[in-house]
Design a protein around this nucleic acid. Structure first.
Lengths: 271, 271
DNA sequence: AGCAGCCATTCCAATTTGCGGAAAATTATA
DNA sequence: TATAATTTTCCGCAAATTGGAATGGCTGCT
């Protein structure tokens, strides 16, 4: 009386992944989330199978349980994937206004950097018109050990990511560049504690930069927003003032980016 | 000499889905695509397993083969998923300028609609200042049988999607509303052939609307862009002129949205 | 309260699929 | 052409998958 596998229709897309994909699409299509039964009907899978697959997706983080209700939505891990696969273009369009606000206020170059694999690269920047070219062209790789923008991001990455980033040898750009992995790790912890990063003369002598992480609800930190300038110019402002502005800009940007995906705020299933 | 499953480490993320997720993230993190070996190293999976999983992802469409080369990238199906899960907010921000261009030119309400499950809903709109409120507030559901925007989208959907959309009975909003499923299907084919949709007096009497589909490379049609207005006002313009403008706006929007994801243009492995 | 109906979860055993090392085939490199 | 690197196939066995049925839980109706 038990049930073996179905006759395996020759034409249908077979494989487990096909079923997962089916479920994901069904869930993504609904704005308000779906119950198990709805998913089961929408996909044509049996209740047992649906239940198991759903739980697998939940465990992996591709779906969210929405607190304990039996309503499933797209989960944080998928959102992270989306952002990872996201090209600079969108972000660039979305953050331009924010960057320009910073430029208007401080008269220096402002930019957004993004985690891309084990590197951080600049994805959008705005410079005051008085400068012919900014220090930070989009696409530039920001080293983990010498750029505030990179530090602000890596400080909030899970251990394995940091480990892989530190696998490559650290370049000593200036006298003040930190090249000792242990020291750098310690420094990153400070950054995480403070909530922002500072780099003075670590990448280029005489250049000062600040950066704040952009926290994406559900997806952790994948971006940072920062300001670079010659030290003597930027020092005209209080550090606290700059940080406050950046922090505010980060929050604003987060909102704009967050809008990209509909999902519920839930990093962990509240224990 | 054969190989059974590994001892099943208790703590590690288990399940097949976890491996798929691992691979997807690894691939997404790279901008230029990864080879099997690179993925195998990045994930720590065996070559055989990697090969099999990779092919499964390829078959499902979550990864792309990039035309025969052994370089894997994020595939069209995932991109479609991203767009499906995408909330109106981003799109809204991205398309505002385009919509405002249309409004400036025609002096009427312009809007973007999006496929959401089996419905089409307006996600962004711009109206001339002279109107206190537009006809098409974001969030409004556009019926498949009476809105140009919906027709422009459904005309390019695969059969099953259309079938599900037609499962619900069609409402007769006005005398001219089409409620016969067969007729509607035929009409949709015309729309597909023409490349745009028109609705005159089908939703509200005296109201005329045009819409063009927005083709997303690799993800088909998920959005449309359109114009609505009182017939007598909109008729001041040649149909061809309006369509040309909309078609252009659609192409522009496509570029802006396409920028959202880095991937290679490949709907089908060219036969 | 009693009951019906819907929904989520657990159970089951037959069966498929997944596993990874090694070897073969293919492709790139010297 | 020789050689190295990479991709693909092979294999037997263990584990995961499957769908119906059975169980448990909850809600709403009488």
């Amino acid at each position: 009386m038990s049930q073996a596998r179905p006759p395996a229709k020759p034409n249908e897309p077979r494989g487990v992944m096909a079923r997962y994909a089916l479920i994901l699409e069904t869930v993504a299509a609904s704005s308000l989330g779906l119950s198990l039964t709805e998913i089961m009907r929408g996909t044509g899978l049996s209740s047992g199978t649906t239940h198991r697959l759903l739980n697998a997706l939940l465990e992996v983080g591709y779906l969210t349980d929405q607190g304990g209700r039996k309503i499933y939505r797209i989960g944080p891990r998928l959102i992270r994937l989306f952002h990872l696969a996201n090209s600079p273009t969108t972000v660039s369009l979305l953050v331009q206004p924010v960057l320009q606000g910073l430029v208007a206020r401080f008269g220096e170059t402002a930019f957004v950097a993004k985690l891309s694999g084990v590197q951080v690269e600049s994805v959008a920047s705005a410079a005051p018109e008085t400068y012919s070219q900014s220090h930070v062209q989009p696409g530039r790789i920001m080293p983990i050990n010498a750029a505030a923008s990179a530090k602000a991001i890596f400080a909030f990455q899970p251990e394995p990511v940091i480990a892989r980033a530190l696998a490559a040898p650290l370049v000593k750009y200036t006298e003040r560049t930190v090249v000792d992995p242990a020291k750098l790790r310690h420094h990153l912890e400070e950054v995480r504690a403070q909530g922002y990063a500072v780099c003075a003369d670590e990448l280029d002598p005489g250049v000062l930069s600040y950066a704040c992480p952009i926290h994406l609800a559900g997806a952790g930190v994948l971006y940072s927003i920062g300001i670079v300038a010659l030290s003597r110019r930027l020092m005209a402002f209080e550090e606290a003032e700059v940080i406050a502005a950046l922090s505010n800009a980060a929050r604003l940007t987060s909102t704009r980016l967050r809008g990209e995906l509909k999902f519920s705020d839930a990093t962990e299933p509240a224990s």
